[in-house]
């Protein structure tokens, strides 16, 4: 099975928003947002996803990506 890659950092760079600013907008702790950004997260709540999409003005597909195990693409 492949894996889910979190591309929050790419979207954050596009929107030019800092980690702390996004954390306060989404109303989660910077530590938790850091867990998400570094790919350590095991799960994400729909409410958190919705709040991040709202703050970054994007779709879930812009943040999350499925990468296949075989061709790595």
């Amino acid at each position: 099975m492949g894996e889910i890659i979190v591309n929050v950092d790419v979207m954050m760079a596009k929107r030019k928003i800092s980690l702390n600013a996004l954390a306060s907008k989404v109303d989660i702790t910077p530590a938790n947002l850091s867990i998400l950004k570094t790919g350590k997260a095991k799960a994400i709540r729909f409410s958190t996803l919705a709040a991040i999409c709202d703050a970054l003005n994007c779709q879930p597909g812009d943040i999350l990506e499925y990468r296949d195990e075989l061709n790595n693409k």
Binding site: I28, N32, L33, I35, L36, K40, A41, K42, A43, I44, R45, T48
Partner: peptide
Amino acid sequence: QEENDLTV
């Protein structure tokens, strides 16, 4: 607990 801690 670990799973819960790593749920954002």
